[in-house]
């Protein structure tokens, strides 16, 4: 395994972390949006705020990390993706502004009108952003982003069956992860919400599972090259892992194992990202293999050492943050 391959694994790990933590943050925004009127939705919104308040900024650094590792390790891929997928990425970037700012502003607002305004911005962009990020990923996965600057079609590269399917899946997976995480938090801090959340988790799980299967059908029709890779070997194994973990999660929710389901639901989501990575390997873009796209060895090695050192600092810090975040009470 070369340094470039290791860096690619690091990239995949960062993307997975963002899909899980960032995805759950976006999903929390989705539940915020559908929580109902100001009075009825207040307990849910309070739980959501309590759960993601301390951690959302840290969760969202995974995206920045993904971007910088991509542009440093595989600069021509970054240039091709960013220039061709200019439209969905701009939309996602604007969504990120609306989301972060809306959430932070609402937290400091005391009147209902202002809470509503900022809250709506937060919730709306929580749906828009993952959709466009998912659509961009779908464009790359279906081979619609060729190497070169703005070499692909500016519209059909992200507005196509595979992209729409992955965009919807991204929104759904986020919502599902969020409701699974929230159910466990509710058990600790707001037990009266558990039953309602459990019902929603079951529903969402079923819908997202259906979306995933539908997504495979769309890929089979729209992106045969990707599909044929998914039909054997490691990618197939990962698809199966995802499906099994997804089904298992439904059972665990049903039987109220809210801690265990955190692991299986995360695995189901992560395996989708890994299956995509494994299916494309060794190609990053059509005709552009890892070895040809990678930065100079001096760069990839420096990146790996730096990341190792950074990880040693990050791991205990993140652990402490999550511990503090889960302590305390919602109602104090």
């Amino acid at each position: 395994m070369t340094a470039a391959d290791l860096l690619l694994l690091l990239l995949l790990a960062a993307m997975t972390a963002y899909a899980l933590f960032g995805g759950a943050d976006f999903g929390a925004g989705f539940w915020d949006l559908v929580a109902g009127g100001a009075e009825r939705g207040r307990p849910h919104r309070k739980l959501i705020e309590h759960s993601i308040g301390p951690v959302w900024e840290a969760n969202h650094v995974w995206l920045i990390f993904t971007i910088v590792v991509l542009w440093t390790g595989f600069p021509s891929v970054f240039a091709a993706v960013a220039s061709t997928l200019y439209i969905p990425l701009t939309a996602a970037a604007l969504g990120i502004i609306g989301r972060g700012a809306g959430f932070a502003f609402r937290k400091t607002s005391v009147t209902l009108g202002r809470q509503r305004l900022f809250g709506a911005g937060f919730a709306f962009s929580s749906i828009v952003t993952p959709f466009f990020l998912g659509a961009a990923a779908g464009g790359v996965a279906s081979g619609r982003v060729p190497p070169g600057i703005a070499a692909g079609d500016l519209v059909s590269s992200w507005w196509n069956p595979t992209s729409v399917a992955t965009g919807l899946l991204a929104v759904g997976v986020g919502a599902y992860l969020a409701v699974v995480f929230l159910t466990r938090d509710a058990q600790k801090h707001a037990p009266e919400l558990v039953d309602g959340l459990r019902r929603r988790a079951l529903w969402t799980g079923a819908v997202v599972g259906a979306l995933a299967v539908l997504g495979l059908v769309v890929v089979a029709a729209d992106a045969p090259a990707l599909f044929s890779e998914l039909r054997h070997g490691v990618p197939l194994a990962l698809v199966v892992v995802s499906l099994v973990a997804g089904l298992l999660s439904l059972l665990l929710v049903n039987f109220r194992s809210f801690v265990a389901v955190r692991i299986t639901a995360s695995l189901a989501a992560a395996a989708v990202v890994w299956a995509w990575g494994a299916a494309q390997h060794p190609f990053l873009l059509p005709g552009l293999a890892v070895a040809d796209a990678a930065a100079a060895p001096a760069v990839t090695r420096a990146m790996l050492w730096v990341s190792l050192a950074g990880g040693v600092i990050l791991a205990p810090s993140l652990w402490w943050l999550f511990r503090i975040a889960s302590a305390g009470s919602v109602r104090s």
Binding site: V61, V68, T72, G73, P75, A295, M303
Partner: peptide, 21 residues
């Protein structure tokens, strides 16, 4: 970025860790 991303990527990566912290 396509040409020089690898040359200036290292400080940005380090910056990523700084932001994390």
């Amino acid at each position: 970025m396509g040409t020089y991303g690898e040359v200036i990527g290292l400080p940005f990566t380090l910056e990523g860790f700084a932001f994390f912290v």
